[in-house]
Structures are given as structure tokens and as C-alpha cells.
Write a protein that binds this DNA or RNA. Structure first.
Lengths: 173, 173
DNA sequence: ACGCTCATGTAACTCGTTACATGATTAA
DNA sequence: TTAATCATGTAACGAGTTACATGAGCGT
């Protein structure tokens, strides 16, 4: 399974960026299949720099905090490519919602309904997020493969929302 | 997000079981939304025992290795219930496949096709696994909520397999 | 002979999380 | 005056992974 370092190398593959900007990409562009935090980003960039996989350039700014822009090196590109060429391993999926449903023998009827309704809300919000992101990327440029990843996310989320709505209706009767 | 200890307490909630049997449940019944290994199971059982959340009973067997059967205690049930009553947090989803598709600008056409075909195979196998498990559980007894979790998994997998087949066909043209 | 099922565990390690720590500018 | 945006980092901790270690019985 991919690690933070590979994700960061992937994000830097075409364009030098700061840790702050990397966080933005994580949150807005690939949050569907990966999530990371600053506590991972900065230490990983430091390590990649020490290994010569990325190089840092400090930019002094007057009205904003200074920033460190990282670019991928040839060694970094090589590591990324090696990862990209390796076999994809099975996804990781952990669901608190399903866990609660599965083990919640003695949850009340209303608790189960509440659980399902909240899950539907969460997923609906994620669908909206993906859809609005897609519109933005289409303007900025997105590859066909990248479009497939977004479509994959939408297919997944809409399927489970439809399923849950249907089950919820049946459950309420 | 749920942790191994909560999953184990959930598995033991109705029936005392050994670490070996817990592993079986993880692999066959809830692998869709959780995965764990012996390296997590045994240390966690040990810790839960020290905390008085489970109790161990050793059973001497003649023709097989001895086994340690763990039962949940009142304290364990309380912890499980507290977890079950807490708000469900967003699922964790990490996909090596989507990562490779997203960052694979310079993968060849055939590599992309290969990636998608393997993903379809993997997911199809998981659909078959879920379906055959469902049949078995229906004989052994499964609650309505548990049936919903399996249906959720099937809805998810079939949606993405359909989507990928469709995209693959378009991509190949 | 070979591999599967049953059965339990530890030690080292890795990766990432959470919380902490700082601080200026700008828009509402 | 309050929150958001821009911007970077560390330290302690937690949870789980991987690899190792052992071994009998049963079916083909």
C-alpha cells in the first residue's frame, strides 16, 4: 500500500510545491483515496530531502510567512516510477459505520435509523465535494485517468447512498 | 475510528472464542470493513485481559494444540457499548489502484489497461466471496443489520466493477 | 513428501496521529 | 473582534505490521 512519501512525490512530480500546498492537494484533490496531515507532510519532506529525493528552496516573502518550495529530483522521480510500476495491492477500507451496524445487536431502532441517516448525510456531502472539485479541475486541466478516479469515487458513493436510502425506507416501514 | 480492541470485543460479545477463531471471523465475516492480523489479535487479547475486559480459560486438548478461550466481562461489555453509542466517524479508504491511476501520467496505455483489469478481477473475487459468505450466514443466522452491511459491500463493489468495465471498454476503443 | 488446519505468541519496527508551539495579514 | 488564510515545524505517543519462532495431526 502506498505511503505518505509516495503520495508526496506524486504531488510534486509536475510542479514544485510547499508543504502547505501539498496539504491543499491532499484535502481537495485526492482526499477520496488518501488522507494525510501536516504532522506527516513536514517530517516526510524533511526525510525525502535528506535522501536527495526532493530539494528545498526557501522563498522570502514580505507580507506573508516565508515558504519552502520543494521540487522532485531525478532520484525522487525514479522512486515514484518504481512505485507506479509495482503491482497495486488491495485497498484499505475501514468503516466505523458498518462496524456499529454489524455489532449493534442491542442498539435501539432509532439509533440504527440515526446511524444510517448520518451516513447518508456524510456521503452526500462527499458526493457534492467531488462534483464541485471535478468542475474546478476540468477548467485547470485534468487527465483522462484522473477523471476516471473521480468517476470511481462518485460511482462508489452514489451506489451506497442509493442502497442506504432504499434500506432505510424498508427499515422504517 | 474503531480500533482492534473494539473489534475483538464485538466479536466476543455473544460467544467466547479463541484468538484463532477471532482471526477467522476477521478474515471471513468482516474483512469487508476491517482487517487485522495475529500480530494484533494476541497482544490485544493480552491487554484486554490485563484490563479485566475479557477473561481467559485454557482448554487442554489431546490431539490438537491447547487453546485459550476468551469471554467478554461486564467491563468489556460496557466499553463496547460506549463505543457503539459514540458517533460514527468517517470511513478510511486508501486505494493503491486509484493512486496509480491518478499519478500515472506516464504509464503506458497497456499498463493502464492492466491496472484496470487487475482491479476488476480483485473486486469480482471479493463480490464472490461476499456472496458465498452471505449464503453461509443465512443458514447460521444473521441479523437484519448485518445483512445490510453485506448488502452495502455488494452495492459498493458491484458499482465500481460496473463503472470500471464501462470505462475500460471506452478506453480500449 | 507436501501442504493445510489447528494453535499461540514475541520483538523490532514503521508509519502516522495528536497535541503543541508560533505568528502576521486580511476580510467580515 | 473574530475567524480564516498563509505558513512551518517538533515531540510524544499509539496502533498495527512484518518477520520470526514452534509444532502436531491429517489428507492426498
Amino acid at each position: 500500500m502506498m505511503k505518505g512519501r509516495e503520495v508526496i512525490l506524486g504531488i510534486l512530480r509536475n510542479k514544485p510545491q510547499t508543504g502547505y500546498e501539498i496539504n491543499d492537494v491532499l484535502k481537495n484533490q485526492i482526499s477520496y483515496f488518501y488522507d494525510g496531515t501536516y504532522g506527516m507532510i513536514y517530517p516526510t519532506l524533511k526525510k525525502l530531502e535528506q535522501e536527495g529525493k526532493v530539494v528545498k528552496q526557501t522563498i522570502i516573502q514580505a507580507d506573508k510567512p516565508n515558504k519552502n518550495v520543494f521540487s522532485i529530483t531525478a532520484a525522487g522521480k525514479k522512486e515514484l516510477q518504481t512505485y507506479l510500476n509495482s503491482d497495486a495491492v488491495a485497498e484499505v477500507f475501514k468503516s466505523d459505520f458498518l462496524m456499529k451496524l454489524f455489532f449493534g445487536d442491542n442498539l435501539s431502532r432509532s439509533q440504527i435509523i440515526n446511524l444510517m441517516e448520518k451516513e447518508i448525510q456524510l456521503k452526500t456531502a462527499q458526493i457534492n465535494h467531488l462534483q464541485s472539485s471535478l468542475q474546478q479541475w476540468e477548467q485547470e486541466g485534468i487527465t483522462d485517468s484522473q477523471k476516471i478516479t473521480v468517476g470511481y469515487g462518485l460511482a462508489h458513493y452514489t451506489a451506497v447512498v442509493d442502497y442506504l436510502n432504499q434500506q432505510l425506507a424498508a427499515f422504517k416501514q
